[in-house]
Design a binder for these strands. Structure first.
Length: 582
RNA sequence: GCGCCCGUAGCUCAGCUGGAUAGAGCAACUGACUUCUAAUCAGUAGGUCGAGGGUUCGAAUCCUUCCGGGCGCGCCA
């Protein structure tokens, strides 16, 4: 249920009617018409720009066209008044009783999840996120993309997409050999060898110690004197699997799980990369060539060199891209081409990748590959997550990878909790940097949005319990008998209007791939609720529980329980548990 | 040099894919606690939406040129 969509349908019917009466032309393009809540309450409950958008097509002045619509709109049920404003906006005012009833009934409806919709129409969509190299534990930098991707996936599911959450394991590159060598060193250490400082170029982290110990238990001294060629593959696979276990645990601490972990290595082993590149070749998009040197500062070792290139420029990229290294192996990009083709072949025309902002330069080439391989059928949206800057009491937290004192995802979750991390990570647009202050995010004040929203939820639970205690007869009221027309105060109506907006928020957030809008909405909803609560402090008649008035109390409980429901529903999308008490 | 992202109140940020007089929070000032949790609320003040030009009924939003900041820029992942 979405009252704005509902009125848009009514409006479309009216427009058709005007077409048959030849007041409007037959083939109207109504796509740009919006039916939405006006920014200013004085403009009523629902506003439409229909007359402005259609005036050119209708060859009428906007206000004249609007005049034609006023009559039929006024005749609609529950419409209290219709006004033409400004250049030709049409503002509708609904009867307050109707507005209250339709919103609260929709939220209470056990057969429909208020806010859910089916604009996705069951279409498959693949959301790929995190995809951290399996070479160590996850650090805070991964955190944001992890939460963002997870919440986006939930959001898309909420609007009717068939979502697959996917993690691409980069287990094929040189860094995985480094992991193997690092683990091998720890293996020797576990067998009693003195290894001293970890050499430059290997991973020094303590987390590999237990991997070395496990290897020692598994293989004894079998690899101790063996050349690298003999142990590399075995230890590499073992260590990578160990790292993935660790990463899965880290993700679980954030409440994140995936439908599929996809290994880059399998792309190489199965010949899928060669297949994908052959497809591009068949389309005439692969050639041997020499790239222009980049303008400006040249890399020190730059030299003209023939390469196997993909004509990504044909699809909007800035330069053509190499798919083979000089040793004949595939580039990372080649694997990614095959990976995205594979997603498409698995039925995902729609794909979303969540990357760190430092990968921005990579977007065009992958999109070019998707367009080329799917003849434009596939759609890849890439969402970049900007940096998270850590602070403690306003002071930046210094991190250096070399010193090994970088903050891990687990450190953060252990200190402030999953819910705080998740909410804060979504409290900014993905492409804006985010400041995360350990002291601020655990503060219990409205400066902290997590707390503020949780507090509203907890307060409602508190009222609910209090009401059951104070007015036991309340439960005897039949659901049908609740008189919602008792909800009349302007602050109450404002709250109802905010609730009415929830389906629009979900829908627009999902279409824009912007889960942060949900977090901002919840803050606004909590704010409306807190405002109403405090009006009850000033004016006891506006409290939710009115001792001698069961009917009114009942109606108000329905209202605030609706708020509670929407908050819980929104938090669920964000992956945050609502608090019953604080 | 080129590409992408960003620039909105003193600070941190929203702004519903082009709508009406640009909104919150923090900080500042004024006020509300024998309460359904004051962990909150109400009010005041604060703006050339980086700058110029363009598109149109209408621009913070789209196009263009500058200015300033971030990221990236032939085989890394």
């Amino acid at each position: 249920m979405n009252i704005f969509n509902q009125f848009k349908e009514e409006l479309n019917l009216l427009l058709q009617e005007l077409s048959t009466q030849s007041i409007l032309p037959d083939d109207l393009d109504a796509r740009n018409i919006t039916v939405e809540p006006p920014r200013d309450e004085k403009h009523g409950d629902i506003a439409t720009n229909a007359a402005l958008v259609l005036s050119k097509q209708a060859r009428m002045k906007p206000r004249d066209l609007a005049e034609c619509l006023v009559g039929p709109l006024t005749a609609l049920e529950h419409v209290e008044s219709v006004e033409i404003a400004g250049p030709g906006f049409i503002n509708l005012r609904l009867s307050p009783n109707y507005l209250v009833a339709i919103v609260l009934d929709a939220i209470a409806d056990p057969n429909g999840e208020y806010g859910s919709s089916n604009i996705g129409d069951g279409e498959k969509i693949n959301v790929e996120y995190v995809s951290a190299n399996p070479t160590g534990p996850m650090h805070v930098g991964h955190c944001r993309g992890a939460v963002f991707g997870d919440a986006l996936a939930s959001l898309l599911a909420k609007v009717g997409y068939a979502v697959t959450r996917e993690y691409y394991i980069n287990d094929a590159g040189a860094q995985i050999d480094v992991l193997a060598r690092s683990a091998y060193l720890r293996y020797r250490e576990a067998l009693g060898e003195e290894v001293g400082d970890i050499p430059e170029g290997l991973y020094p982290g303590e987390y590999l110690v237990s991997v070395g110990e496990k290897l020692a238990r598994l293989y004894g001294d079998k690899w101790l004197k063996a050349p690298e060629a003999e142990w590399l593959t075995v230890i590499r696979d073992f260590a990578a699997a160990e790292m993935m276990d660790m990463i899965r645990d880290d993700l679980a601490s954030l409440g994140i799980s995936f439908d599929l972990f996809y290994s880059e290595k399998t792309l190489h082993d199965s010949g899928r990369i060669a297949d994908a590149l052959a497809q591009l070749d068949a389309k005439g998009l692969i050639y041997e060539g020499v790239l222009e040197p980049p303008k400006g500062k040249l890399p020190d070792d730059w030299e003209a060199r023939p390469q196997t290139l993909f004509k990504s420029t044909q699809f909007g990229d800035d330069v053509d891209r190499a798919v083979k290294k000089s040793d004949g192996s595939w580039t990372y990009f080649a694997a990614d081409v095959a990976y995205h083709l594979d997603k498409y072949q698995r039925g995902f025309s729609r794909m979303v990748d969540v990357w760190g902002a430092d990968h921005g330069g990579y977007i065009k080439r992958v999109q070019a590959a998707v367009t080329a391989l799917t003849d434009g059928e596939g759609d890849l949206d890439v969402k970049l997550c900007q940096l998270v800057r850590l602070f403690r009491n306003g002071e930046p937290v210094r991190m250096s990878k070399r010193a090994g004192n970088f903050v891990t995802l687990r450190d953060v979750v252990d200190e402030v909790g999953k819910d705080v991390v998740r909410f804060i990570m979504l409290s900014r647009k993905n492409d804006a940097t985010l400041d995360f202050d350990f002291s601020k995010v655990t503060e219990q004040s409205k400066d902290n949005p997590v707390f503020y929203v949780q507090y509203a939820h907890a307060r409602i639970c508190s009222v609910r319990d209090k009401a059951a205690e104070q007015l036991p007869e309340i439960d005897e009221t039949d659901e049908e008998d609740i008189d919602l027309s008792l909800i009349q105060d302007p602050a109450e109506i404002r709250l109802i209007k905010t609730l009415a907006n929830w389906p629009r928020i979900i829908e627009s957030a999902a279409m824009a791939h912007e889960p942060h809008r949900v977090a901002f909405y919840l803050y606004d909803l909590a704010s409306d609720f807190h405002a109403l609560w405090n009006k009850g402090n000033d004016n006891p008649e506006l409290r939710f529980i009115i001792d001698n008035n069961v009917a009114l109390t009942r109606a108000r409980l329905v209202m605030i329980l609706a708020v509670r429901w929407v908050i819980a529903s929104g938090l669920e999308i964000l992956g945050v548990e609502p608090a019953e008490a604080m």
